[in-house]
Design a protein around this nucleic acid. Structure first.
Lengths: 113, 113
DNA sequence: TGCTATCTATTGGCAGCCAATATATTGGCT
DNA sequence: AGCCAATATATTGGCTGCCAATAGATAGCA
């Protein structure tokens, strides 16, 4: 998988893994990795700025937690984030439909199978 | 549809529309537009450099044609281009599978429907 | 005489992800 | 005790690759 593959779809990925409950940054990376069967390996330089941006625009909310001496910053979806996630899913379908129909055109009308 | 949406998939689109026969640049734009039901509107600044690049690396071959006074540059797939197209289709499936499985996770094992 | 469609082409810009880098804790293995 | 991998957060600079803007030419129609 091309490293740059998530370009344009990162927000949707982040929102999606946070849908089922709060996660901290490192856990988000592993969650995306697991759910994509290892295909998508996000880097810290990719997600931390993105998470900050998503919080800044009100799609996420964060809070610091402590596990012993270790601090974690947990992110969770806001209501706006949930609505945006729904929009991202719709956009994803439109996107794959568009590209897919060019890449694999349907048989023309009247084409006998 | 985001304008920037084809990023990373442009080559596949160009190769795919050329699979069924040679086309010139302008016709490629309309072909992509039609096959995507209007969703994808490529610009000249997008495709001409891309077509040149694909020819330079041997995936396309071009020839000038004349229709009256008007000149057209027709592109067609080389054999390498056909092989690359097949690879692009495989990569597309892997890509959509990866993103899709994160965006819309399958029900976990044991989840009663 | 314009306006739209057809046709090719180049350049600069910039959005957005990544590599590299920095820092610190924790737990297991030897 | 010492080392290393895993866990955890964060920033910066850079580059890829598409797009907007621009340019120019022919053709047909109102």
């Amino acid at each position: 998988m091309r490293q740059d593959a998530v370009r344009g779809h990162l927000d949707g990925l982040l929102l999606a893994v946070l849908e089922q409950g709060p996660l901290h940054g490192y856990a988000i990376i592993t969650a995306v990795q697991e759910r994509s069967a290892g295909a998508l390996e996000l880097r810290t330089g990719t997600i931390y700025p993105a998470l900050n941006r998503l919080e800044r625009v009100g799609l996420l909310r964060s809070s610091w937690q402590s596990v012993g001496e270790r601090r974690r910053r947990c992110y969770e979806l806001t209501e706006a984030g949930q609505r945006t996630l729904a929009g991202e899913r719709t956009a994803w379908i439109e996107f794959t439909t568009a590209i897919g129909s060019v890449l694999n055109p349907a048989a023309p009308p009247g084409f006998a199978t």
